[in-house]
Design a protein around this nucleic acid. Structure first.
Lengths: 334, 334
DNA sequence: GGAAAAAATGATACCGATAACACAAGAGAG
DNA sequence: CTCTCTTGTGTTATCGGTATCATTTTTTCC
């Protein structure tokens, strides 16, 4: 059918106007008459014109529709959902998502950032706020719309959309105590590249401290959080510390793994030992006993982050600190 | 420190050569002397030069390092792992991943493709092979390196890296029969936008047919496959068909949800009813009784897909049909 | 009716790289 | 010692849009 991709010049010729006028109509910016508008749009439609975003982004400081999104990982945890929602929202507004994962490693974040900035994105969404010096310098130099997600930062670089991890932990700590748990442990993962999961443990410990309870033993495994890691963590903790009566896991996957171990070891839940996770994964809600956990609306977070970013990209005013509420689910395992 | 981003011109000046020579050195293409090379590299390093990929891609037919990757979804299933591996591999080779999700809807695939092609990507990785006419036309016109993943296609558009879903189902069907199951059902999801999961059911049914067994009742729910959907599907099937002695679920999440329902209904597994899933998710391996399922190496698939694509991008010869083996795990639930 | 203001449109430069070709210097062949 | 071939390097055009400013046309208002 079409011999080659039609360019703006073709469209302009077909409409009998200059390239510039066609450009204005198609971007709906600047002035043009209604009649011209109709002619250009019709020509574009007839030629099946698709603008070359590469050229547009290249030719202008402000025309990029690329957004870089960096998360620790896409599998397993909740980040897949977050990215999915971000992408859906960006797509709805005509933007494209340039993805990256950094496994909680600051160097990888920096490398990714360098590579993504060379595409002159319209904005960035990063996870967390612990950046290397190089990263911070690049971010400052780039002066891009930037949303930092996941962890709430009340003094954000630009915009923060997140959760209060510390409070999640604190709240859960109080729940453990109210259920009479006293020999408690925390089980985490990602020891060599800790993310924000461990902030929850700090809140948890503080709750114990505030109540004058003994601190929780903590076991942080090397690998990424997973069912297996939860299983092993429970095994390790119980072997090492004997009579524990509660374990707070870094997330629900680990908690479910931990429960599997406890059951196989003949421990009753919640009779002998209380278990809690974090994240509110689907599976946790249909266990025979619903898992005690903290629900997080990853959809709300992703949507809020993407929308805040786009608002900032358009230059409109945005709230720069957006807290996504979480909800403690008492469940039946504590 | 630096006032502005240094461009190639700056580097060339600093090295005392022309822009073109600097470009050649930095891309390691064409001819240049060893001494020139050293000077340019040193200048680039000193100025902390980062090439503008946008400009490079714009200026050349072949310089793009963008790869478009489209999957049905990022959350829940196995696609998060696949994309994560693809991205890791692409990153390792200096490419960037432009992501998209299409929820198994052909129109969304087409819209995404249109938008991504306007970035002139170096290649594409799509899921499945059921494209709309418009999609196929665009793909043909673009003549891009293209890898279709997930479903193995022995006559691929360009390259196919996938799994034989039909055989997975067939194999599982034979296992159901060998365990004496005769009143069997299939439970799926995504009714309005079926993906390849349902191809497994076709294989499954064929196994029953070949053995002269009655066909399986099939319940395909509307929503995406999830723990909940498995729970409800089991409930619906048992309410409607009474004494089932086996259910084959579309994936492990649904299977685990289904097991939860069966247990809550007082049915023994595998005594009263046999359950199987597909996908080999972690959680399935640590259930008290290991779930009967089919293991899929999403890592192998993602890596193979990305590597095949990059090989093709470089113009080197590639095998165009790469089958990723799967492994039936008998487990303890059938 | 004519000047000033506003609206519509056009001409040109430019973004930062790469492709294609031109050209100078040195090496090897006869 | 010239002639060709190779090697290294530079020059110019180009990709497809957008920004800027100039120019023409129309409207407004006294």
């Amino acid at each position: 059918m079409d011999k080659r991709k039609p360019s703006l010049t073709q469209v302009a010729e077909a409409a009998g106007v200059s390239k510039m006028t066609a450009s204005r109509v198609l971007r709906n910016s600047g002035r043009f008459s209604g009649e011209t508008r109709a002619r250009v749009l019709q020509a574009a439609d007839r030629l099946n014109y698709v603008p070359d975003r590469l050229a547009a982004a290249f030719g202008s400081e402000t025309a990029s529709t690329l957004v870089g999104v960096l998360v620790p990982r896409l599998s397993g945890g909740l980040f897949g959902q977050v990215v999915e929602t971000i992408d859906a929202t960006l797509t709805r507004f005509g933007y494209q998502t340039l993805i990256g994962t950094y496994e909680n490693r600051a160097e990888q974040e920096e490398a990714w950032l360098k590579s993504v900035l060379s595409w002159r994105p319209a904005g960035l969404i990063l996870t967390g706020r612990g950046h290397t010096e190089g990263t911070s310098a690049m971010l400052k130099a780039a002066t891009l719309p930037l949303v930092e997600i996941w962890d709430l930062n009340t003094r954000p670089t630009d915009i923060s959309v997140g959760i209060n991890h510390f409070d999640c932990g604190y709240e859960m700590g109080r729940l453990f105590l109210s259920r009479g748990r006293r020999r408690i442990a925390c089980a985490g993962a990602d020891a060599s590249a800790p993310g924000l999961g461990q902030v929850r443990f700090h809140g948890f410990q503080e709750a114990l401290r505030d109540a004058g309870a003994p601190p929780a033993e903590t076991e942080i495994l090397e690998d990424r959080p997973s069912f297996y890691q939860g299983f092993y963590a429970a095994q390790t903790l119980l072997a090492r510390h004997g009579k524990l009566d509660g374990i707070y896991f870094q997330n629900d996957e680990m908690a479910i793994g931990g429960m599997a171990y406890c059951q196989s070891a003949g421990l009753g839940i919640p009779g002998d030992i209380g278990i809690a996770g974090w994240g509110g994964m689907d599976a946790a809600a249909i266990l025979e006993r619903r898992l005690t956990t903290t629900n997080v609306s990853t959809r709300a977070l992703g949507k809020a982050a993407a929308e805040a970013l786009l608002t900032r990209v358009r230059g409109e005013p945005v709230r720069d600190v957006i807290e996504i509420p979480t909800k403690l689910i008492p469940g039946g395992t504590l």
